[in-house]
Amino acid sequence: MYNQEKCKFSKTHEWAFIEGDTAVCGISDHAQHEISDIVFVELPKIGAKVQAGKACAVIESVKSAADFYAPLSGEVTQVNENLNSNPALINQAPHGEGWIFKIKISNAKEEEKLLSFDAYKATL
């Protein structure tokens, strides 16, 4: 759905699928694999202002709680409510059903700092 080749990545393993002034955000396949079985996602609130590089969600496995750092700044317009009942969606389809939230981008310039899929792959 949000094909990884078309996504931009942060070094901290988040992706953003950008369309105009909105971005869908999630975590990379590599990250979901590292975290292993995800049991809970603490989603941001709709309307929350997230800042690039700052923690805005938490992804829990049985033995860990990983911060999700916003890849871009903006206002949260939608969250993936399905994760509340089925957090495993992130494990199953990190670039599809396992998306986390959508934002309205507030600073398009930040997009330049994100990595292409190939560049991200090279960091792993």
């Binding site: 049991v39 809970f40 938490v58 829990e60 496995s61 049985v62 033995k63 860990s64 709680a65």
Partner: peptide, 13 residues
């Protein structure tokens, strides 16, 4: 269960 809420995992959070 739900241990990721607790101090030994979340520490200051």
């Amino acid at each position: 269960t739900l241990q990721a809420r607790e101090q030994h995992i979340r520490r200051e959070r």
